[in-house]
Design a protein around this nucleic acid. Structure first.
Length: 236
DNA sequence: AACGTAAGCAACCGCGGTGCG
DNA sequence: TCGCACCGCGGTTGCTTACGT
């Protein structure tokens, strides 16, 4: 039974809603989403709140372009695990399943198009190098091997070498090597179920800090004052 | 400068799993 | 043991922005 009062909001989140959600998550944690949704006064479902938090508001999130290493990691993990986006995301600190999923979608679409055009007889076959890609993932070029692939065409530069702080790509690769399809992988930052939960318990690479509080403009960030314990104060 | 298309991103939906009374 | 409520995941959709003509 839904009354008009129960009508939940949908669609894009406003800044005010974000602020509210952050404050209430900091108060009550990021597990009881229905509760948070109710007490916050947001006319949103718990589900919606969770999604907004996980995909956008979580302070550990990295924003911006995937590094070539991350791209390679995604491809490798996808080759192993398929569309287990959340699982893959756990291997990529600061990236969400949604982000990876979107990346993959775009990526595969691009690849499909490249393939198509490569197949086309009217086009030169010289561009096959960029369409070898995914099927070669089974034997991924490990970091440091210097093996060139199309994945490395983006960004490059300093981002490649130790661009990730806290949890090195080497560690991640080692971790992956040690993991198997059947074994859920548990590590410091990506413990099953702990990744996005309990911010105050997050591993160092996920901890709250003004630096990791989004990649937002100064104007936006002015609205918050992080407490010592990681909670925020709305300054208005 | 205007328009059309592609790409990227944020959010919703439906389903399955899990915990609890 | 069963039913319910909630959570999390994967798939999909729709909107916005970027780019090319």
């Amino acid at each position: 039974m839904k009354t008009m009062k129960d009508e939940t909001r949908k669609g894009p989140w406003t800044e005010q809603e974000d602020i509210l959600l952050i404050n209430f998550v900091n108060l009550f944690g990021d597990r009881r989403w229905d509760f948070v949704a109710k007490v916050s006064g947001l006319n949103r479902t718990g589900k919606s709140c969770r999604l907004r938090w996980v995909n956008y508001l979580h302070p550990g999130l990295k924003r911006g372009k995937m590094t070539p290493q991350e791209e390679r990691l995604v491809l490798e993990l996808h080759a192993r695990w398929g569309n287990r986006w959340s699982r893959i995301a756990r291997k990529l600190p600061g990236r969400t399943d949604n982000e990876i999923k979107n990346y993959w979608r775009t990526h595969t679409r691009k690849k499909a198009q490249e393939r198509k055009s490569a197949m086309s007889p009217s086009l030169s076959s010289s561009n096959c190098s960029s369409s070898s890609n995914i099927t070669t993932v089974n034997s991924p070029p490990l970091p440091g091997t210097g093996e060139a692939s199309f994945y490395d065409t983006g960004g490059l530069g300093e981002a490649v070498q130790g661009g990730e702080k806290g949890y090195s790509m080497d560690d991640i690769w080692k971790d992956i090597e040690n993991s198997t399809i059947n074994e859920p992988v548990c590590d410091g930052f990506s413990e099953e179920g702990c990744n996005f939960s309990c911010p105050s318990l997050a591993s160092p690479s996920w901890e709250y800090s003004p630096d990791t509080l989004w990649s937002i403009s100064g104007e936006e960030s002015r609205m918050f004052l992080p407490y010592d314990d990681g909670t925020m104060l709305l300054t208005g």
